[in-house]
Design a protein around this nucleic acid. Structure first.
Lengths: 164, 164
DNA sequence: AATTATTACTTTTGATTCGCAAGCAAATAT
DNA sequence: ATATTTGCTTGCGAATCAAAAGTAATAATT
């Protein structure tokens, strides 16, 4: 039992609300930092969504749904909640449209930029034989020749896109 | 139908072997390098196993099974095959014990060292509130202060451990 | 003002991946 | 000769991913 509350109603009645904490999934496999990172990020979609925000500037639910990767709506909803739980993204309301929510990377989320960039470079250099249609781009060249500058530029760009 | 062969037996008999290629899983979601990297590495175990080889110097099936992460034997077997398929590891026979196989990172696998190190640093700086038992170590300090040197040293150490 | 379309989900059902436990063949140890 | 070890495979069940349909609130259209 993780939470209990009694709400007093009328006529000597009360409502008892009990939240049981069952089958709590063990969140981390061990005390290793790399394994812990992968306990949070090591699935099909978490880093892809971060990449979509950082590099492709996606910020609404519809943006993500319409991306090339074609994520399912239930998976996206679940993963956005998870990213928020770990403090990697932040959501806010659209200034003029109540239906639309805006998602953005926090500083914590932005601090994954070096990891995203390393994966891009690694993939470019090691996966073309397996995925021959992998695109080429000037960005990849920039990543390889000026990695640190590129990382800072990505972060700065993302921060500036986020109207506070 | 992906493969057919007929084997002639005796007494006018023959055996026909046909391999059908069905439900071939789409291997890559799109042409993006980051997403392609995650199509290969984006699961619970691939990068953990690479980390275990690189940092913890695990090299036998038993070594992996006995690691803190407690992977299941069927998962390990399957992941080792997958890592080999993508050219990230290489297996060879133990010089004196035919039962034991040795697994080692190839250069391609070793080129994931920057990614592993970035994940370690990120985790150390961002996940302690979620995983309070995360260990501290001198290695983490070295990673942060001399990242490039640390990366090269890890690679070099791994290469030297691999008796050719 | 009523109707239709959009957005961000939730729910249901099914497919895939992960995990547990038991079993197996080959090789090594006792 | 027997027991143990190694690296798996198999069967079954749990967790994650995915597709499709449905929902409530909001915006756009008529």
């Amino acid at each position: 039992m993780a939470f209990e509350k009694q709400v007093i109603l009328k006529n000597n009645c009360f409502l008892q609300v009990i939240l049981y904490q069952v089958n709590m999934k063990q969140e981390f496999r061990c005390d290793c930092p790399v394994t812990s990172a992968l306990d949070v990020l090591g699935d099909k979609w978490m880093l892809v969504i971060i990449k979509q925000m950082l590099i492709e500037e996606k910020q609404t639910f519809k943006d993500f749904i319409e991306s090339d990767e074609a994520i399912s709506t239930n998976i996206l909803s679940s993963k956005l909640k998870c990213l928020e739980h770990y403090g990697l993204i932040q959501r806010k309301n659209h200034p003029t449209n109540k239906k639309t929510k805006l998602y953005h990377l926090t500083e914590k989320g932005l601090s994954l930029t070096p990891t995203i960039v390393e994966l891009a470079i690694w993939s470019d250099q090691n996966l073309r034989e397996h995925n021959p249609i992998m695109r080429e781009s000037d960005e990849l060249e920039l990543m390889k020749t000026s990695k640190a500058e590129f990382i800072e530029r990505l972060k700065k760009g993302h921060r500036e896109n986020w109207l506070e």
